[in-house]
């Protein structure tokens, strides 16, 4: 099963739920068949809690054009076909803007002089290893680079049938990096807080995950007890199950601030996260 954990609003506890769910999977045998992918490549945080050993690193690169000046006739076809304004043919020179390039290869295909080759432009890295027996990987977008999606796409190549369960920790928001983290999931778990901001962004996340992508969804109500009843009423009216409630608890906030997991700080939560996993599996099958 591929389980994506998302939220719309930031800071609702996606990483907390993802990490503790992963750690609550009971046996070592099960953990070895568990894959954890931190898809929040702009601000990856899961490693701060799982503390994985990093066994391998690889670059994430977008293939950007390189213009052979001796062959370029400044014909400008590349500029016409590029949808991202990443290449500009001037009368005497053709300029490439690597940060804007999506790496589609369109300019190289279109150049009548075959003056364009492609070279890698590194935009981030992927690190992978093990944490408490769990297979772990995350992507890290380089500071100053705008495009997170290619990093997530490359990270997701690790998904395979060797794993019984893959937990994907998604970024906040509802834009393309979130969509990439949700695409292909079997179940979408949305972590929210019962506040007007939490509800507003939960609705948007449901629009993306359930309505656009057709995924089954369930909700975790975190910091339950703050705010108002809006999230409960919304889930009830939409028929979205609330699979777990975590009360507002200063002990959890303090443990989080120090990088300590909920199951370490409050061991009674291990059972609760196992129950959450059972509920997800049950909902996912229906």
């Amino acid at each position: 099963m591929i389980l994506t954990i998302a939220s719309g609003k930031g800071g609702t506890g996606k990483t907390t739920i993802a990490v503790n769910l992963a750690l609550s999977v009971a046996s070592a045998e099960q953990k070895s068949r568990l894959l954890f992918l931190d898809c929040d490549v702009e601000e990856p945080n899961a490693h701060l809690f799982l503390k994985p050993s990093v066994a391998a690193r690889e670059d994430v690169a977008v293939r950007v054009p390189r213009v052979d000046a001796s062959r370029c006739t400044h014909h400008g076809r590349c500029t016409v076909v590029c949808q991202f304004h990443a290449i500009a043919a001037l009368p005497n020179e053709t300029l490439v803007f690597p940060e804007l390039c999506h790496g589609c290869g369109g300019c190289a295909l279109a150049c009548p002089e075959k003056a364009i080759s492609e070279e890698p432009h590194v935009i981030g890295i992927i690190e992978e290893g093990h944490a408490d027996g769990i297979n772990f990987a995350h992507g890290v977008l380089n500071v100053g680079e705008p495009m997170a999606t290619p990093v997530i796409r490359q990270l997701k190549r690790r998904l395979s049938n060797e794993y019984d369960l893959a937990i994907l920790d998604a970024p906040p928001g509802t834009a393309c990096p979130v969509v990439e983290s949700m695409r292909g999931a079997d179940f979408l778990l949305l972590v929210t807080e019962p506040t007007p901001f939490g509800l507003h962004d939960l609705r948007l996340a449901v629009q993306v995950g359930r309505d656009e992508l057709g995924l089954p969804v369930g909700v975790v109500a975190n910091q339950d007890g703050v705010g108002d009843a809006g999230v409960d009423e919304y889930c009830e009216s939409e028929g979205i199950p609330i699979l777990m409630r975590i009360p507002l608890d200063r002990r959890i906030a303090e443990a989080y601030s120090r990088g300590i997991t909920v199951v370490d700080a409050l061991p009674e939560y291990r059972d609760r996260f196992q129950q959450l996993m059972h509920s997800i599996l049950k909902e996912g099958q229906e």
Binding site: N45, G144, R258
Partner: peptide, 21 residues
């Protein structure tokens, strides 16, 4: 920024963005 390990980790990166631009 919140005073958490994640907050500090992310502060370093967002300050990097400000510096970069």
């Amino acid at each position: 920024i919140e005073p958490t390990v994640s907050g500090i980790h992310d502060l370093e990166r967002i300050l990097g963005v400000a510096r970069h631009f």
